[in-house]
């Protein structure tokens, strides 16, 4: 009941409605990329290299004559897939670690806290770079790197939520009824702790897309010819003076996607009224 009304409240604000529509368009474009992209993302035509935007190629072509619009639409697949998958993995692991640490406490909690605090003091990009250096470049290692980079955030948030909820009387009431740890954790603590974690995950997805683009820009992410916005921008740097659209349009795609995700996440925070719970972390 509360969920539905929160979503309605979200969509009634201009910020929420606009960001939801933009996100919807991006997601649909990514899912239906092979259908709606006017050209294949890997079709090269060197005679058409570095063409400026035209009726045939709305956003122009790149240095190999590939259609930029098609590559951006396909690139949305890569960006969203990497962002969503890695954050989901990160969130699930973070919640498991954080909930276990917060609920059971003791030595395990102290160990988790130390590791989390340590990794918290490194920027995400640095952690990701270190991991890719170990794992080697590629799409899979990008996802693993991003998951690990954000793990601390979700562990910390879940742990804080669980610690706060643990002292609620209904937890004690459940124990007094004879419930074991599993019941308490899965029926009470996690359902009540999950909302802020999901919203944090939503916001982190925006960051993860930037991180993926950054890694792609350095050539550490998805390998050619798989289109990735970061890699596209990177290849555009060479043409920046003769064909600036090659770097501008992927950049815009990143900016619009990330802004939309952040606005949506922010509107969600207000609609669910959990700003305070997130800040306590």
């Amino acid at each position: 009941m509360d969920k539905d009304s929160a979503l309605m409240r979200l969509l009634r604000t201009p910020r929420g409605a606009i960001s939801a529509v933009v996100l919807g368009v991006i997601v649909i474009a990514a899912v239906l990329a092979p259908v709606i992209a006017p050209y294949g993302y890997a079709i090269q035509n060197l005679r058409l290299a570095n063409m400026e935007p035209s009726a045939a190629h709305w956003l122009g072509t790149d240095e190999f004559g590939r259609d930029l619009l098609s590559r951006i639409i396909h690139g949305a697949r890569t960006s969203l897939a990497v962002g969503v998958t890695s954050i989901t993995i990160s969130m699930v692991c973070g919640m498991a670690l954080g909930a276990a640490a917060g609920y059971f406490g003791g030595a395990f909690d102290r160990a988790v806290t130390v590791v989390v605090d340590l990794s918290w003091s490194f920027p995400e990009i640095l952690l990701a770079l270190i991991l890719i250096a170990i794992l080697g470049p590629g799409l899979a290692s990008t996802m693993i790197a991003i998951s690990v980079a954000y793990l601390a955030q979700f562990t910390r948030l879940t742990r804080a939520q669980v610690m706060a909820l643990k002292s609620e009387t209904y937890i004690e009431a459940t124990i007094a009824m004879g419930a074991g740890s599993g019941h308490v954790l899965f029926r009470h603590l996690l359902p009540n702790a999950i909302t802020p974690v999901i919203v944090a995950g939503m916001l982190a997805t925006g960051d993860a897309i930037i991180l993926e683009a950054t890694l792609g820009f350095f050539g550490l992410g998805a390998q050619p010819p798989t289109p990735s916005w970061g890699a596209m921008m990177s290849s555009g740097t060479a043409q920046i003076f003769i064909a600036p659209w090659i770097i501008i349009f992927p950049g815009l795609a990143i900016a619009i996607t990330v802004i939309a995700i952040n606005l949506f996440g922010d509107a969600l925070i207000d609609a669910l009224d959990i700003r305070k719970r997130l800040r306590e972390n």
């Binding site: 209904y170 009431a173 007094a176 009824m177």
Partner: peptide
Amino acid sequence: RQIRRRMQMVFQDPYSSLD
């Protein structure tokens, strides 16, 4: 757990004793 069926508790704060 078995024996908890036979002993129960009512809490002070009715606001936080229900999920």
